[in-house]
Simulated assay, not measured.
Amino acid sequence: MEQGYQSFSNVKNIYCVGRNFGLHAKELGNAIPEQPMIFTKPTHAIAQADGTIPFFKTLGEIHHEVEIVLWVCRTYQPGMRLQELVNAFTIGIDFTARDIQSVLKAKGHPWVLSKGFPNSAVLAPFRPVDDATSLQSVSFGLRKNGVVVQHGTPAEMIFDFQTILDYIGTNLGLSEGDIIFTGTPAGVGPIADQEVLELLLNEEGIGKCQVSLA
Rank of each mutant, 00 (worst) to 15 (best):
M1V: 14
G4Q: 12
S7Y: 14
V11F: 12
V11Y: 08
I14G: 09
C16F: 07
V17S: 07
G18S: 02
N20S: 08
N20V: 02
F21C: 05
F21D: 04
L23T: 13
A25Y: 02
E27G: 08
L28G: 02
L28E: 07
G29V: 07
N30F: 14
A31W: 00
P33V: 02
P33T: 02
E34S: 13
E34M: 05
P36A: 07
M37S: 14
F39T: 01
T40C: 11
K41P: 01
T43R: 12
I46T: 10
I53K: 03
P54N: 05
L59N: 10
E61I: 11
I62F: 10
H63D: 13
E65G: 04
V66N: 08
V69Q: 09
L70A: 04
R74T: 15
T75P: 07
T75I: 04
T75L: 08
Y76G: 04
Q77W: 05
R81E: 12
L82G: 10
E84Q: 15
E84R: 03
L85K: 08
N87G: 01
A88C: 11
A88I: 00
T90L: 12
I91C: 06
G92A: 06
G92Y: 03
T96E: 05
A97W: 07
A97M: 08
R98H: 02
D99N: 12
I100Y: 00
I100R: 13
K105F: 01
H109A: 13
W111L: 01
V112D: 13
S114P: 06
K115Y: 00
K115L: 04
F117A: 03
F117K: 00
F117D: 00
P118M: 03
P118A: 12
N119P: 03
V122S: 11
V122P: 04
F126P: 07
V129K: 05
V129H: 09
T133L: 14
S134W: 04
Q136L: 11
Q136T: 09
Q136K: 14
S137Q: 15
V138R: 11
V138Q: 09
K144L: 15
N145M: 07
V149N: 09
G152N: 06
T153D: 11
T153N: 10
A155M: 12
E156R: 12
M157N: 02
I158P: 10
Q162C: 11
T163F: 06
I164E: 10
I164C: 11
D166V: 05
D166H: 13
Y167M: 06
I168K: 11
G169Y: 07
T170N: 15
N171T: 15
N171H: 15
L172R: 13
L172K: 13
G173L: 09
S175P: 01
E176W: 00
T182A: 03
G187D: 06
V188A: 15
V188F: 09
E195T: 03
E195F: 07
L197T: 07
L197K: 03
L200D: 00
E203D: 15
I206K: 06
K208A: 13
K208T: 07
A214C: 10
